[in-house]
Design a protein around this nucleic acid. Sequence first.
DNA 1: CCGCTGACTGCGG
DNA 2: ACCGCAGCCAGCG
Length: 96
Amino acid sequence: MTRANASVDERVKAAVRTIPEGYVMTYGDIARRLGLKTARQVGTVLARGSDPIPWHRVLHANGMLVEGLSAEQSRLLRSERIEVHRGRVNLKQYRW
DNA sequence: CCGCTGACTGCGG
DNA sequence: ACCGCAGCCAGCG
C-alpha cells in the first residue's frame, strides 16, 4: 500500500515531488529508483503532465534540458538558483 | 497481433 | 565535445 500498489503514473509523480528545490534528477535516475525498465516510461508520464509537479527538475542523462520546453525550463531552474549554461545543467553540481 | 511514436540512453565516429 | 544512430519498451490506434 505504501508504494507497491500505486500505479506507475503515481509513483513517478511522487518521485519527482521528492526532488528538493535547487536540485535535479535525470529520467534514468528516477526510473532506476522506482525499479522501472526504461527512462522513457518516466518521460511518457511527465509528457502527459496532468498534475502540478516540479517537472523542470527532471533532465536528460547528460544534463540537457527538455527539447521544446528549454526556455520555460531554464527560467524555472534559474528561479531556484540552478545555473543553466548552453541549454544544460552541470549534474556534478546539482544532481540530487 | 502489428506498427509507429516518443519529455530516453549509450556508444561509436 | 559534438553529432548520429541503433536499441529499448510502454502506450495507443
